[in-house]
């Protein structure tokens, strides 16, 4: 029982929290813009690689590295919105233009990263207080990392909830998500809100990538995995629902750890895809979502 707790359940919390954070970063973009960012996993990946450069190799203090990584993530996502998403979205909000243009950004970031960092995975040392090596905590041999990441994820979810309810910009974002024209009629600058969604989504994605780096290693190969898990968390939780995404992310983490323990690592994606397909067919709105996403 103890080994289940320490080897399966607690790691699942930390890893699941990471997936939940990526899912939330998808939501931050999806809610105002109505688009799914196919390049999001690549921005997560960028966070890990930048952490490698700033924190591991250049020895920046962790907070400085964090701020720099998040700023770059925000800038990349903002550039993506301005150059790739908005022109396609303005031409045809229901077309596949933005699917293709975010795929283009996916390709561009991926290959730029390969040119810059190469394809060899590299180790990133643990952040202070988030050690990935096991310590004795309350009599259990576990890594503090998993608890730390979970706490960070919960804090971010709560902060975003308060932001959406208590701040004008947050309310405006929720308004744009529901009815763009009606929001504009109340003085909301829709374009700005969409840009802000990308800025926040990019920053959070990069933050998650940096958080994940000590666990996953810094490598160009993690991008697609994070897109996979993050989307699954967001879709299972109900697109746009942050609490749902975090909960679903934790469930995914557990699913992954269970598959690793009782079956084989190579089948994790298969298990998750089947679970996702099954749930979407029964409940297209996700586990916690309200409105059924309409066919467009």
């Amino acid at each position: 029982m103890n080994s289940f707790l320490t080897d399966v359940f607690i790691p699942a919390l930390g890893i699941g929290a990471l997936y939940g954070l990526v899912g939330i970063s998808f939501n931050l973009i999806f809610a105002p813009a109505g688009t799914f960012n196919f390049a999001q996993g690549q921005i997560v990946m960028l966070g890990g690689l930048l952490a490698l450069s700033f924190y591991q190799q250049n020895g920046w203090p962790v907070l400085l590295a964090l701020v720099a990584v998040m700023a770059i993530g925000a800038a990349v996502a903002l550039a993506e919105e301005r150059i790739a998403v908005w022109p396609a979205l303005r031409r045809d909000p229901h077309g596949i233009g933005w699917v293709l243009s975010t795929l283009a950004v996916f390709t561009i970031i991926q290959n730029l990263a390969i040119l810059q960092w190469g394809t060899t995975p590299q180790n990133v040392k643990s952040f202070p207080a988030l050690s990935v090596s096991r310590h004795d905590v309350f009599g259990l041999q576990v890594a503090p990392y998993h608890f730390g990441v979970l706490l960070i994820a919960i804090a971010i979810t709560v902060a975003l909830y308060l932001f959406a309810r208590r701040s004008a910009i947050g309310r405006a974002t929720a308004a744009v998500a529901q009815d763009r024209d009606a929001a504009a009629l109340r003085g909301v600058n829709v374009r700005l809100v969409i840009s802000l969604g990308f800025v926040m989504g990019g920053a959070l994605a990069c933050l998650t990538g940096m958080l994940a780096a000590p666990l996953t290693l810094a490598t160009v190969n993690v991008g697609l995995t994070f897109t996979f898990r993050g989307f699954t968390a967001a879709a299972l939780g109900g697109m746009g629902d942050n609490t749902g995404a975090l909960t679903a992310g934790l469930a995914l983490g557990l699913m992954e750890q269970l598959t690793l323990r009782y079956w084989q690592g190579g089948y994790v994606n298969l298990v998750i895809l089947l679970a996702l397909l099954g749930l979407l067919l029964v409940r297209p709105e996700g586990l916690f979502g309200q409105a059924v996403p309409r066919r467009v």
Binding site: A168, R171, A174, A175, Q178, D179, D181, A182, R186, N189
Partner: peptide, 20 residues
């Protein structure tokens, strides 16, 4: 009646005043 249905009455009213 294009109000913001997922938000509360108060939030709807606040959105009306927030940006003006």
């Amino acid at each position: 009646r294009r109000i913001f249905r997922r938000q509360t009455v108060e939030e709807n009213l606040l959105i009306g005043a927030d940006f003006c």
